[in-house]
Design a binder for these strands. Sequence first.
DNA 1: TTTGGTAGTCACTAATTAGTGACATACTTT
DNA 2: AAAGTATGTCACTAATTAGTGACTACCAAA
Lengths: 207, 207
Amino acid sequence: MAPQRDKEQTMQRLIDAVGTIIGREGFRNIGVNTVAKEADVDKVLIYRYFGGLDGLLKAYAYQKDFWLNIDKLFGDIEPERLNDMCYLKEITKQILHGQLTEMRANKELQEILIWELVERNNLTAQLAADREEKGTGLTRLLSGKLGIAQEVEPLIAIVIAGVTYLALRSRSDSHFNGVNISSADGWGRIEEGLNKIVDLYFESLAK
Amino acid sequence: MAPQRDKEQTMQRLIDAVGTIIGREGFRNIGVNTVAKEADVDKVLIYRYFGGLDGLLKAYAYQKDFWLNIDKLFGDIEPERLNDMCYLKEITKQILHGQLTEMRANKELQEILIWELVERNNLTAQLAADREEKGTGLTRLLSGKLGIAQEVEPLIAIVIAGVTYLALRSRSDSHFNGVNISSADGWGRIEEGLNKIVDLYFESLAK
DNA sequence: TTTGGTAGTCACTAATTAGTGACATACTTT
DNA sequence: AAAGTATGTCACTAATTAGTGACTACCAAA
């Protein structure tokens, strides 16, 4: 029988409370008092179990998977078809579509990204570094197949950064450059824009 | 002779203190105590002269010209040549170049943009709205000349958003998607990427 | 059943926050 | 010069912050 006093469970409650607060209000109002109250747990346990708020945040960050899961996006790829330019184009669109969808849907990821922008500490630096390492999958795929990494890298950087910023903006703004980023319709137009860029680029390669 | 007690000067000291703090540490540590200390002025004057911190921040934001000054970028345009597709293409590149340069150089603008991302209040909402209104100049120019606003809007949104996010990231990250966003070289590559997109798009129109 | 360690509670400190009321001093107007 | 007003100073409150020390209660092993 599980003990009435359960350290593991209490730790988990604290970690979950961090997620709840970040998802609801962002990282601004996070502090030992807030988290302890949300978890309905005494704040002294944060110090006992995690050594302080930083340790708790670290535990939180490493339990969740905050970088975009590129491997998942790459799962559906049929390697033997990658030499088919047309297939490669579709894969590219598919990956960008996945990034857009994930960025729009994952509120906690949005908050983490903003946190990384606002304050740089050991934790946010680590998260950013992990993301940078894992997030260049599309570039590597295209450069591996096309042998044009130099040219394609900045293009993907612009596009991914654009989608990211639009998603972050959509938290509080309804429009950006005339596009309604608070509606599915507007995001559909953005996706069309992404596809257009991909189409144009692959066309230019075919020539 | 100027009086020893100078309300105007004191107000300006407070406004400047806001700028100093924002430039140094961003919006995180801003508060009546911090600002008053930085300005070497009693905090009660913030309430007397500005009605509180919000009023002071508003005065700060509106004293500076924080939206990208589109009018300035549009100054060099020779209207009679705008029907020349090739000239239009160059103007587009030039405007994007201006946005990129401004975003990279203007640290205070970067902080304001991050502030807008982090907390939404009357002031940040107003700033965002102003920027949205003024910031669609390029779109209007192209759609006016090309009559393809629907298609061009999301493309520009993605590109401008991308440049913005890369600039914000560059405050604390050295790389994004393999591009070195902390070096002039890396930003040169990004600009090449922008030009590439513009070239491709205008090519597609010529067909 | 006693004993030792641990999970969890509670009450406190010291620092910092936003905001206010009372006061003094300088400048201006009469 | 006298009086009044506005500028600036100081001391205070109440709330909230991070962090600590002392305590109780439970659980497991001896």
